[in-house]
Structure formats: C-alpha cells, structure tokens
Design a protein around this nucleic acid. Sequence first.
DNA 1: CTAAATTTGACCTTTTTAAGTCAAGTCTGA
DNA 2: TCAGACTTGACTTAAAAAGGTCAAATTTAG
Lengths: 100, 100
Amino acid sequence: MTLGQKIKELRESKGMLQRQLAAKLEIGDGFLSKVEHDQKALKREHLNSISKIFDYPLEELESLWIATRIYELVKDEQSALNALKVAEEQIKYGKTHAKV
Amino acid sequence: MTLGQKIKELRESKGMLQRQLAAKLEIGDGFLSKVEHDQKALKREHLNSISKIFDYPLEELESLWIATRIYELVKDEQSALNALKVAEEQIKYGKTHAKV
DNA sequence: CTAAATTTGACCTTTTTAAGTCAAGTCTGA
DNA sequence: TCAGACTTGACTTAAAAAGGTCAAATTTAG
C-alpha cells in the first residue's frame, strides 16, 4: 500500500470526487490525480488535513509518506533491500548513541 | 557502520593520509574529512575509485552509500523504522509487479 | 613544544527538487 | 453519445541540495 493508494481508497470510501478533495486541500485536481498515482508528493502539512477529513490516524499517513520518499530514493537500486537493512542498523545505532 | 566510517577504516588500514586519498579522488582534504564524518556525501563515481584503491567490493560501498542517504532522510522521524518496513514492502511488491 | 594531520565553519556556484498549474486527451457509464 | 471524471505532459518558479573550496582552529604524536 502506498500513500497514493491509501488516499484514493479513503476518498472513494466517502464517495468523494477528486475535485472535492482537491478543493479541501486547496490544490488542483490534476495534482491530486498525480498524488494518487504517487507521481507527485503532497506537502506534509496536507497529511493533517487528510487525517481529519477521513478520521484516519496521522501516524499511518506519515509512515506511508516517508516510505514513499524512501521508495523513490532506492527504487532503481539493485541493492535496495540490502541498503534498507544497513540503514535500519544505522538508525538503531543512532537511537542509542544519539548526541543530544 | 556508515560509509564514512568504512572509508576511514580502509584509509587507515593502508596507513594513508586524508591528503593522499583526497588527491587520488581529486577532492580537497577538508571535504574528505567531512565525508568520513558523514557530513557530506561523495559522488557515486568516487565509490569506484575507492573500491579499486582499497580492493574492496563496490556493492558494499554502494549499500553503505544508499543507506546513508536513507538515514539522512529519516533520521529525525519518530516512525523511521516503521516507514522502513513499509518501504520494504513497497519495494518487494514493486519488484514482482514491475511495469517493464 | 610543535609540526603535521585533521576538523570545522563560512561561503560559493550549479544543479535538482518541490510543488504546483493548466489545457488537452482519455475513460466511463447512463 | 456526450458529459463529467480522471489522467497526462509540458511547463514554471522558488527553494534546497549537491558538491565542493579555503582558512582558521583544534587535535595528536613524537
């Protein structure tokens, strides 16, 4: 599940049109279409609005939002999964040894 | 282990000075110092040189290089690890359903 | 101590990315 | 068929990131 898929799913579950959701987010509907196809990224602030409009947990939206960015970064890499593992270790290590 | 740490390790294992390695890479030694501390990123092409200079597998350097970028992206995120999991799924799914 | 090695901060230029818009084209279903 | 919904490609502009340099300050080893 990507963020775009999730947004589309939420939108359709309420029978809302792209135009309507786009208006609430104050963006064009062409842009929203691309967002739903993960061709463009929303601003992070938009996640708050989406969370409220659909009463869906913000944390989940944020995870999807970050994940999409990670995916964009590594999608053409042969060693994407391995790099993810390495990054995971770095994060875990960083967490325990954080410098203030 | 980060890329910077690995480069420093390789360099010192050969008793090489920053100045010497920097010259081989055709960068300034101030810049290399920052690279070793993961404050700046090398160009990807530099990995090839490093791999040859130290006879160290390129794939490992690349994984570390990508991982550092991922780390930069998520280091301030509370849900970094969770996002990584989500990204992993997206990659696995993407791999099997690649469009050409 | 002191000289060489390293680290750091400030700064710089060029390239990319972000975050859209808009209009034309395509799809869908009544 | 044909209107409304959606998708897509081309384009834009401001902001940020890439990829450094250089000199001053600091660290380290002999």
